[in-house]
């Protein structure tokens, strides 16, 4: 399930800092991360995603692996095709029950992730979807977008259809691969099936 370079379209955009939030919806839908799998969830966050350890411990308080709440990110094993969701601490009783290692974890025992042995699985390149929510998205979004994120082409196409008409006039620069393009023609340059490596920088107008 690893994307080849031939399948991947590289898109680089420059917008003002004030417009960067418009890309956050893409991060909530999920970015694709290629790495060697299986690996521990902690390894994925610290090494593959380069998130600082303190941030993982303190800010990322709600973690899902395939929709199940994770309490032990060191013990949770991530495999090819898995979906990881990262969120800050959430309000409400249910929000509190979903937090990693909280005092209310028993209230959602049927939703808790149980670590399964992956010792028999050979380590190989694979791909994981990572979704960023709320404050985690607002805080990790800018550096992730600055470094570049891999996206399903369909998500990017839908983004261009929904958001681009309003955002294009404010776009300061756009490139596909090495080639500069007019912002207005971007939607027709992205094929639905291709994966997109999207890099978004900011600049003051």
């Amino acid at each position: 399930m690893v994307a080849s370079k031939q399948d991947t379209l590289t898109v680089e955009l420059v917008v003002t800092e004030a417009d960067l939030w418009r890309f956050f919806g893409l991060l909530r839908q999920g970015i694709l991360v290629t790495t060697h799998l299986p690996s521990s969830l902690q390894q994925l966050l610290l090494v593959a995603l380069k998130i600082p350890d303190a941030y993982v411990r303190e800010r990322i308080q709600t973690v899902f692996l395939n929709g199940k709440a994770v309490d032990d990110i060191q013990g949770a094993s991530v495999s090819d095709g898995d979906v990881v969701t990262l969120s800050a601490a959430m309000p409400g009783l249910v929000g509190a029950t979903l937090r990693k290692g909280g005092q209310l974890t028993n209230l959602r025992s049927s939703l808790s992730h149980r670590s399964l042995s992956t010792e028999t699985e050979a380590v190989a390149p694979g791909m994981v979807t990572v979704k960023l929510f709320n404050l985690v998205c607002a805080e990790l979004g800018p550096p992730f977008l600055g470094r570049g994120v891999l996206l399903p082409g369909g998500h990017f196409k839908a983004f261009l259809a929904d958001v681009w008409p309003e955002l294009a006039p404010a776009c300061i620069g756009a490139r596909i691969g090495e080639k500069p393009v007019e912002a207005a023609v971007l939607p027709e340059s992205v094929a639905p099936g291709a994966m997109v490596r999207l890099k978004v920088g900011t600049q003051t107008r």
Binding site: R28, T62, G67, T85, M90, V94, L111, N134
Partner: peptide
């Protein structure tokens, strides 16, 4: 409070 939508949805 609507911050919960994404997380509760993700939890199924």
């Amino acid at each position: 409070t609507n911050v919960l939508t994404g997380v509760i949805n993700e939890a199924g």
